[in-house]
Simulated assay, not measured.
Amino acid sequence: MGRNKYERAIGQEPEGDLWSFTVSNSNNLPLQAAVGVYPRQSGASQHGNVSTAIQSECVEIAKKLGWTDEHIVVYKEDIVVSGRKKMYERLGFSRMIDDITNGRVKAVLAVDVDRFFRDEWGSQYTTFMELCYEHDVIVITPDFISNFKREDHREIFVFNCRRTAMYLKFQVRSRLQYPRKYLQQRGYYAGLGSPPVGYDVDKKPDSPTYRKFIPYRPHAEVVRWLFERYNELQLDVLALAKEIWEKKYILFPLLDDTASDLLRGKLRVTPVTKDGTALGVSKESRQGAEIVGYTLHRAGLESLLCNPTYIGT
């Protein structure tokens, strides 16, 4: 079957501007209905970089294609939500599905198919294709305008979704995990998770312990006491947890000036107010509270006592 105005060979690079192919092949678009712009990013760290700028440009592209402001719907809720989440687990995507099923939206626009899905098994993007098929919705990306009434368009969309999933599986999850494991096996902080309680990360490039865990002494002393007390209680973690909560111990003092910014942003202990109230993890529960120190819940205490990082320290 010959290619029509909506097609381009798979893998063929666009000439000129990123969206030039789509803009120059945009006849007969459903301009009487709304277009849904889905600007999901890979993560919060992408705010303010080139990827953010490209995806923000989607609204301007929709205008170039002929839609007016009142016919452009932007689903901002999912801006930093993982593409591996199912459609109905994402607030913005759920709203977009509602707009598709009620006929408000007849076109969906994104900078790439990987903005919609990172679905290794294919259940999500095939369901989405069927939904668009049933409601006459086209999908617009820089290099393709997909009309799922056509079998060849469905095949190309599936190919692109699979290609994205395979890239993530072998490039990101496999190849990029090796450097992290390499660092971890040599005692370096690999950038994942929080430093174990009682440790900070040396951020001074000229230091012999650069990027390694170093004791944060005000908290390290408490960790040593916890292990000592745990032994005195004959390895009874429940008794230790009960003792901490009954006596309302403020185990860990507030961070001082020697703590790194990384530790301040990733400290995983429970804040405690002056009257001994332990606060939740949400910012709302901590807002306006006078935090005087930190403690540990039972789960946090068990995690600390089982952490192999403390062996020999």
Rank of each mutant, 00 (worst) to 15 (best):
V137G: 00
A44K: 12
I54M: 07
Y182W: 12
T277N: 09
Y167R: 07
R211C: 14
H297F: 11
R115Y: 05
A289D: 05
I156P: 00
Q32W: 06
K63V: 08
G16F: 05
W67A: 05
H47Q: 08
K106V: 06
F159Q: 13
K283Q: 13
L255G: 03
N25P: 07
D78H: 06
A53N: 03
F170Q: 05
E57S: 15
P179K: 08
I54F: 07
Q41Y: 13
F117N: 03
E57Q: 13
Q171L: 06
E290S: 09
K169P: 01
L255V: 01
G66H: 05
H135N: 14
L305R: 00
F128N: 02
V111Y: 15
A53R: 13
L233P: 01
L301F: 05
Y216Q: 04
T52E: 08
A239F: 04
Y167M: 09
S123A: 15
T209W: 03
K63S: 09
C306R: 10
E243R: 13
E246C: 04
P14C: 11
M87E: 07
I244P: 02
L131N: 10
A299G: 08
L240A: 00
T52P: 00
N4D: 15
Y199E: 05
R180K: 15
R84S: 14
L29I: 03
W225S: 11
L235I: 12
I97E: 04
T126K: 10
T313M: 07
L235T: 11
D98T: 11
Y182L: 14
E70H: 15
R84D: 12
D202P: 06
L279P: 07
